[in-house]
Design a protein around this nucleic acid. Structure first.
Lengths: 160, 160
DNA sequence: TGAATATCGTCAAGTATCTTGACTATACGG
DNA sequence: CCGTATAGTCAAGATACTTGACGATATTCA
């Protein structure tokens, strides 16, 4: 009993939450590494999360804020960074003097293209690892989970 | 075409990475909300990530650093916070004048107990939503993915 | 028309988390 | 005892996010 303190007697990480977190982290680390290896050194997970809400043809900043589940200020700061990196540009909205349009630059579109390629690569790796059938089961379960959740999630903060 | 700018034409979030991220976020948000509702206002995801590596009987700080995949300084800062909240306490290691033992306080053990209860609650909710079979398939796939990954992950940073 | 109100974006300051670098104290090997 | 490795700390900076306050434009409606 006073032998080695016996770590790992409990705290067994085998509940859904831990497994999901683990898997998500692994995916993101792999993706980020590949993106940086592809020359997109500006890439980060937070920025990726935002870019995932910007369609290829651009969007209004306010529409972007609605989609991303954070405050408008957080979105703005991320946009500032991405604009400074030359990934995005902001133009005045001709139809609303208050608004601005967010649009990809050439550099941004190149990154999107590489991102899509890398996603497919990673997915192929997963299928190699666990088989096509189990991969399909994983996707089905995740989609069901998402669909079954509905609108139970919270409001975006900072929107006062 | 000049009608409504037609958002959501692309950027379809249906690849593994996005689904995993989404599911993981949802779980964590639900867990954190339940923990705070149970009176553990000090709870945060980063702290949870660290607590997940501390067995109920405590551990040495150095052992903890090995397990958590971050720098010793990050671990220390989280421990500082948790100690200040009264969740943990640090004692000198009687067997090594350099080391310290990290141990739960009564408050910390209470939180662990509530955490376990909440995990089961959430899991039950998932099973209600997607069925026992699909839930089992999800867990199997996640476990296979983890097992198939091996040691491909990077070293802990900051360990110079 | 024109005033009240709402929306869009910005500026500023603070918090949490994590990073790198430098440092002290203790342990251990020869 | 001495050199080196290990355990933990202190300090400073970067990133991501939060709340609060604000100016500019749009919309509503009396």
């Amino acid at each position: 009993m006073v032998k080695e303190l016996d770590e790992k007697t409990d705290v067994l990480p085998d509940h859904v939450g831990w497994r999901l977190w683990q898997a998500s982290r692994a995916w993101q680390a792999e993706f980020a590494a590949a993106m940086r290896a592809a020359g997109h050194a500006w890439f980060s997970e937070a920025r990726a999360g935002l870019l995932g809400h910007i369609p290829r043809n651009g969007t209004r900043q306010s529409a972007l804020i609605e989609r991303a589940a954070t405050s408008k200020q957080a979105v703005q700061q991320l946009l500032d960074g991405l604009e400074a990196e030359g990934v995005l540009e902001r133009l005045p909205d001709p139809r609303d003097g208050r608004g601005k349009l967010v649009r990809y630059t050439r550099k941004g579109l190149d990154a999107l293209r590489d991102g899509d390629r890398i996603k497919l690569q990673i997915e192929r790796g997963y299928i190699d690892r666990i088989g096509e059938q189990q991969f399909a089961a994983l996707m089905d379960a995740l989609r069901s989970l998402d669909a079954g959740q509905g609108d139970a999630s919270g409001e975006a903060p900072g929107s006062k």
